[in-house]
Write a protein that binds this DNA or RNA. Structure first.
Lengths: 227, 227
DNA sequence: TGCACTGATGGCAATCTGTGCCATCTGGGC
DNA sequence: GCCCAGATGGCACAGATTGCCATCAGTGCA
């Protein structure tokens, strides 16, 4: 464990479409591992699951597992981070569409949040339910909570450059940072609140519904949004 | 690692004063280990430090080390969490002093933040510098970052009941939650920003100075504070 | 003060984690 | 069809964690 020479790729941040067969296989393998880990974690909890078992269920060697993920807990990262990735992609799109400093950043944020938290299809709905399951399991398991913390922090960090792009060059880096933190927290708290309830993924009490309120409250005083 | 039967005590949350000799010794031991870990982490980084070495420098057996901390990185937790603990204590005091629903929650928060981030003595100043060192080391070490995430999240969770007490019974739990998140983020970002700079612990660019701004921006839109 | 009890610590063994290294296999380009 | 770069598997090993048991030191009580 002494010196780290090379790390596995980040658990998310889809910057390019998989093109060749090899690329697609690798993406599939990562997802296989992530699903295997999520299943086992949900069944017995992360502590009672070994990396070896995850690898076996995913159909890869232990060594390969560690080429994809730096740790056992990391393996569920892609599932938990998926929503955030989609959200950031939406934001970046919105920025590209309305290219110009004249866009209403607050409105763009709110739209992207609503859209990314409203399940577009069955797959998206399942993803939310998986998240709910992991968060409930996390209530009992510190290691799993740690993964959730990490995913959210990384989501916040990756949001910074996106927001900086939307806000333009004149923006104070600290203000951008605050906006990223506020928006990330708004989503996090909305999702956590929903996960703790029995509300469905759509309608009153849904993540999208709750986030509308949390986002407004947390971003209401931000200089970056013109407060 | 299979089944976890009992965990070490939380790394912080001083709810009672150490009374007997045993209690005081345990507190001292925990601090000895934390300091030893911080020294070694700062010297060579967490990856190049073994738990064995931390234990040896702290003068305890490896087995004892793991009775105090769940992992190697966790060992620095008490040092990182100290500031938050002090801050929450200040808040609770303020609430007890001004007992009544008539207090200006925003002002109380701001006062407590300023006071807890302004080093009262040499020890407090050193604590901030240690934090800076750890945050810089965390830049290179994912596990150390995870500790920082955890410390902040736990600080936020512990803040919730304190704020609920200050806000009174009528407060919406979600609003309280948002206030806790906003305040915690304000402090976190202020400290992180300071740690990344070369600013001294007092004056312009100090944590207290930065936090004044971050707190105002993040709490400016909160319903709990009357926005 | 002296005894019994409870909890803290050390030491040891065993399991699991995470990484370096090398052999083999496979898609992709020429 | 041949060659190369990258992906995977297998193996060994240092280090991380934890269960278990023996010992020792405060604490409470007679």
């Amino acid at each position: 464990m002494r010196y780290v020479t090379s790390y596995p790729r980040p658990v998310s941040s889809p910057t390019s479409r998989p093109t060749g067969l090899t690329e697609r296989r690798k993406a599939a393998t990562q997802l296989d591992i992530a699903r295997a880990a999520a299943e086992l974690f949900a069944e017995r909890g992360p502590d009672a699951t070994t990396a070896e078992e995850i690898a076996r269920r995913a159909g890869v060697a232990l060594r390969t597992f560690y080429r994809y993920f730096r740790s056992k807990q990391d393996a569920v990262g892609p599932l938990l981070a998926g929503g955030g990735d989609r959200w950031r992609a939406l934001l970046a799109e919105a920025g590209a569409a309305t290219d110009g400093p004249a866009l209403d950043l607050g409105a763009v944020l709110a739209d992207a949040v609503r859209e990314s938290l409203t399940p577009a299809d069955a797959t998206a709905g399942e993803a939310l339910e998986v998240t709910r399951g992991m968060l409930r399991a996390a209530h009992e398991d510190a290691a799993l909570r740690a993964v959730w913390y990490r995913v959210n922090q990384e989501s916040e960090e990756r949001l910074v450059p996106v927001l900086a792009g939307l806000a333009g060059d004149g923006a104070d880096p600290l203000d951008v940072r605050l906006a990223a933190a506020a928006a990330t927290d708004a989503i996090r708290i909305a999702v956590e609140t929903w996960a703790a309830s029995d509300a469905p993924a759509e309608g009153p009490g849904s993540p999208a519904d709750l986030a509308e309120d949390t986002l407004r409250q947390l971003t209401g005083g931000l200089r970056l949004l013109g407060a």
